[in-house]
Amino acid sequence: MDKVKKIYTRNEFYTAALILVLAVFIELRSGLFFTSNNILDILRAMIVPGMLGLSEYIVMVSGGCDVSFPYSAALSMYSTIILLKAVDFMGNVMIAFLLSCLFGIVIGMVNGLIIMRYRFPVLIVTLATCSICQGILFGILNAHEIPAIPQPIQSLAKSMLIRTYSEKAQMAGSLPLVFLVFFILTAAVWFLMRRTAMGRSIFAVGGDVGSAERIGIKVNYVYMFIYGFAGFIAGLTGMTRVVLMDTCHPNTFSGMDMTVIAAVILGGTKVTGGSGSITGVMLGTLLFVIVNNSLQLMGIPNYWQKFFLGVLIVLGTGIAAFQVSRKRKKGKAG
């Protein structure tokens, strides 16, 4: 009985319920939701926001809010591609991924260094680095779309994990091979956060920096790790995006910051830090992807998207905050 009660009070429960309601509603209206190609489409659309969501999740558990990832991902992706094109790259695709991750780590380390040394508000620091990345990308590198990406990446873009054909929708669906990257990353982040000392330290720092310091956690080291790892994920996501789109567009991530942050919050990660689960992140991302993908299926014009997004963010954060304050009141009474 106690366990059932616990599930009710969790944000993940509401998000999952909302997803279910939405799915049934769309199925009833269009009859095209539970087709193999739509489900594969949704899984495919989850890859990039899901990966970015994982990086935001780690930062948010530590008590910060990173907004630099759209342009740090774009910058590491773009500089990797121009570097590879300059040397007429023909080798293993892994090298492209590694290079992009390396760029991402460097950008993340800059964030981490400033936050570690000065303890400024994370949002302001990452807003500044976001602006700097944007300036480097468009001002110095003169970024524009590169449609002809190196050969090894192109061949990866064409390899699929699953191919299906849905009789009902008369459409073929497919899941690209890079879905595995997303899957492995999710497992790795789960292992990091739940099974290692570093993960526990991140939760502790997010709960209370002062207490974490007193029990002997090297907070500066943890901060460096968090932002370095977030940068790593950003770089990885950049390359994955290139593979998915089969082209390299510098503006491909712009505007994604809000959706990703909102998805993570809707999944029950506390913005004040110290709490959150990967299941929640995935559910939040799934909800947003369904809303994005399915507005057309339901016949709602595209320009309503932003409004729904805003309502979801305000509702999601509102429910979470309301529950915290109610719990606190209960604690006082009991």
Binding site: M258, I313, V314, T317, G318, A321, F322, V324, S325
Partner: peptide
């Protein structure tokens, strides 16, 4: 509702 200012205004920016 005690939503952190940053997130509340981030959400309302989308809303507006």
């Amino acid at each position: 509702l005690k939503i952190p200012a940053m997130l509340a205004t981030l959400g309302s920016l989308q809303l507006f």
